[in-house]
């Protein structure tokens, strides 16, 4: 089965993150960016072929922000927090971290 990867990268400092795919919650965790891999966390979600709606909700003490993107199976959703503002990119799966 194909997967969509969701990678949480820069700027996370203990926020609670909820990931949904087509409205279904698939991931929920408090995350913090680790400098040695420049990422906070990641998950791989098995999906059927085709395009899916991926939502990422970032919850802090001040409230929550949600960002959404469409992604095809096999793609990678990369989410970062830049000055507290979530940014999302749909990336080639070759661009992982190390």
């Amino acid at each position: 089965m194909a997967t969509i990867s969701v990678v949480l990268k820069h700027g996370f400092a203990g926020e609670n993150v909820v990931v949904t795919v087509d409205g279904r919650e698939v991931f929920q965790r408090q995350v913090r960016t680790r400098m040695q891999i420049d990422r906070a966390d990641a998950c791989e979600i098995p999906v059927d072929a085709g395009t899916h709606r991926v939502g990422v909700r970032i919850e802090t003490a001040d409230g929550s922000r949600t960002i959404e993107a469409n992604a095809e199976a096999g793609r990678m959703i990369v989410v970062s927090l830049v000055d507290g503002v979530p940014q999302v990119n749909v990336a080639d799966e070759n661009a992982g971290d190390a």
Binding site: S5, I37, A42, M76, A98
Partner: peptide, 8 residues
């Protein structure tokens, strides 16, 4: 974390 992490 899957295939997106090449090393750590």
């Amino acid at each position: 974390q899957g295939t997106s992490l090449g090393g750590i």
